[in-house]
């Protein structure tokens, strides 16, 4: 132990511990200093989840593809809900992926206090690191899914379907982040509430199922009668899933016009939810 960094005696304090912080004070500077932890935690989650599985990360692909197949069977073939000009597989898959990302973030954040009780009781670091690394870990899966999706899309184009990328695809990272932050924000609300009311943890799964069906994931927005459209937009998840980064040209104009002015709500919700839950 060398004492090469003995502090000088000026009246400057590095750490100040005070009773209460304003609710908007996320102490992002501190978060930035600890940013390296996010990567390590991401690795830890990944290794811990897939260390002793045979297929490893392939499992990331299983859930959305399987889900899309189920949706194809029930909603497209049996219930005959049209997916417009987009092939059903390409219609369901991105929705399943982003929704999966959203719920992973939500569940992870909602469990954050319970699953880290030992750690939080032992050592200080910005607590926001944990939900953010959940978000980052889930991003690994989403990336793998996106790659497989591109593969499938290329296959469909090769089969002669008329599908194109839209300029909205550039906004994809942004929307992914919004979905993630939405999940983290809502999850953290549940995390703090469930410390007091354990009942609420039973509310998450059915609630998510409800929101899932209220969001145009397994059906196109055109499926909803015109008079109900404004109400649909009360659901903060809707604009994320409406962004037509991948649709046939014909739909783009109408859907863009419908969705674009309403891009603000998720952002606003995120700002309201995230600090409040700390």
């Amino acid at each position: 132990m060398t004492s090469n960094n003995i502090v000088t005696s000026n009246e400057e304090w590095d750490t100040i511990i005070r009773p209460q912080r304003a609710w908007w004070d996320l102490r992002l500077g501190e978060l930035w200093r600890y940013r390296g932890l996010i990567g390590l935690w991401m690795r830890r989650d990944f290794v811990a989840t897939y260390m002793q599985t045979v297929l490893g990360p392939v499992w990331y692909l299983f859930s959305p593809i399987f889900g899309s197949l189920v949706n194809m069977l029930f909603f497209n073939k049996i219930a005959r809900i049209s997916t417009g000009d987009v092939p059903p597989m390409l219609f369901y898959l991105p929705g399943m992926m982003v929704w999966g990302y959203f719920t992973t973030c939500l569940y992870g954040s909602a469990a954050i206090l319970f699953s880290n009780v030992g750690l939080f009781g032992k050592v200080y670091f910005p607590r926001l690191i944990m939900p953010l690394s959940t978000m980052a870990s889930a991003l690994i899966g989403l990336t793998l899914q996106a790659i497989s999706f591109i593969g499938i899309a290329v296959f469909f184009v090769w089969q002669g379907f008329d599908i194109h990328l839209t300029p909205w695809v550039l906004a994809l990272p942004f929307y992914t982040l919004i979905a993630g932050f939405m999940g983290v924000g809502i999850g953290l609300i549940f995390a703090s509430l469930t410390t007091r009311y354990r009942d609420l943890q039973h509310f998450i799964a059915p609630g998510l199922t409800l929101v899932n069906y209220a969001t145009p994931i397994v059906y196109p927005i055109t499926f909803i009668p015109d008079f109900m459209r404004p109400f649909v937009f009360l659901n903060p998840m809707v604009p994320i899933f409406l962004t037509p980064w991948f649709q046939s040209w014909k739909d783009i104009v109408t859907v863009c016009l419908a969705a674009a002015p309403r891009q603000i709500p998720p952002n606003l919700f995120m700002r309201l939810y995230l600090p409040w839950s700390f």
Binding site: T15, I16, I17, R18
Partner: peptide, 17 residues
């Protein structure tokens, strides 16, 4: 002191890590 819980009142100032 280890910032696991916050004080209700008062202030703690520390220099260095």
């Amino acid at each position: 002191l280890s910032r696991i819980t916050a004080p209700t009142e008062g202030i703690i100032k520390a220099r260095g890590k």
